[in-house]
């Protein structure tokens, strides 16, 4: 059976090579990928959406449904991880010397706790506020410079994990208010649905944005609300995933 896997890899490699050989070389400005809808977005994106960062414009306006369901995907991942039985809930097996409960306790063989070096702890705590400011900036300026909701969520989530690793999960968990946790982790899908509904009322299409030049401020407010929802919801989901996997 061992040769079967290798044969699969060889066949996949040959097929991909054949496919890639037909593509135009990368970097050419007249390749077909650049001449259709991408060129249209580049040409009219700023006028149509008011956002200078066209990646954010494509994510939130042109491909809004895609992003909505993506937020639902990461929320479903959190639901799946939390729904799995915790720690020592394993069913007992007959004829096993070791009770299954012992496999996951802290005394198991792979569980040596290594204390964090004071240098690492100091550097993480020193840089923490600056990382938080960077995440906030990439959220607030996300439609005119590199950044946006997802990047901000990723940076906030990574910062939470770094703090939890050096300070212990109890201290880091206080950053997310316990009572609001249930709502915060669903904030991405909720804010998307809310703004989508607002757009429905205003323009007659779900996730529609008012296009008139006079509604510039309203459109900006809707985009910022969705971005904040994605950033806070995504960051809380990443933090909860870490907590569920760790404890």
């Amino acid at each position: 059976m061992r040769w079967l896997g290798l044969a699969l890899v060889v066949v996949a490699a040959a097929t991909l090579m054949l496919g890639v050989a037909d593509l135009p070389p990368h970097g050419a400005h007249d390749a077909p990928v650049h001449t259709h809808v991408g060129a249209r977005y580049l040409e009219r994106g700023v006028a149509e959406t008011g956002m200078r960062n066209l990646v954010t414009a494509v994510l939130l306006v042109y491909r809004g449904f895609d992003t909505f369901l993506e937020v639902v995907v990461i929320f479903s991942a959190l639901v799946a991880v939390v729904a799995l039985p915790r720690g020592r809930a394993a069913r007992s097996r007959d004829g096993d010397d070791q009770p299954p409960a012992a496999l996951l306790t802290r005394e198991g063989p792979a569980q040596e706790r290594i204390s964090v070096s004071p240098v690492v702890a100091f550097v993480v705590q020193l840089l923490g506020p600056f990382i938080a400011v960077f995440a906030l900036a990439s959220l607030y300026r996300g439609h005119v410079s590199p950044g946006g909701g997802f990047q901000s969520a990723a940076i906030f989530g990574a910062l939470f994990i770094a703090l939890a690793l050096v300070q212990g999960r109890e201290r880091a968990a206080r950053l997310v208010p316990r009572g609001a946790r249930v709502w915060l982790q669903a904030l991405g899908p909720l804010s998307f649905a809310l703004i989508g509904g607002v757009g429905w009322v205003l323009t007659g299409a779900f996730l529609g944005y008012p296009a008139e030049a006079a509604a510039y401020a309203l459109r900006e407010a809707m985009v910022v609300a969705v971005e904040i929802g994605i950033a806070v919801g995504g960051a809380v989901i990443l933090a909860q995933l870490f907590m569920a996997m760790e404890g």
Binding site: Y41, L54, L59
Partner: peptide, 16 residues
């Protein structure tokens, strides 16, 4: 081209 970038951002989140 912004479209591949938006697709890849979606893909990274789904991958994690």
């Amino acid at each position: 081209n912004p479209i591949p970038h938006a697709m890849v951002l979606t893909g990274i989140v789904v991958a994690v």
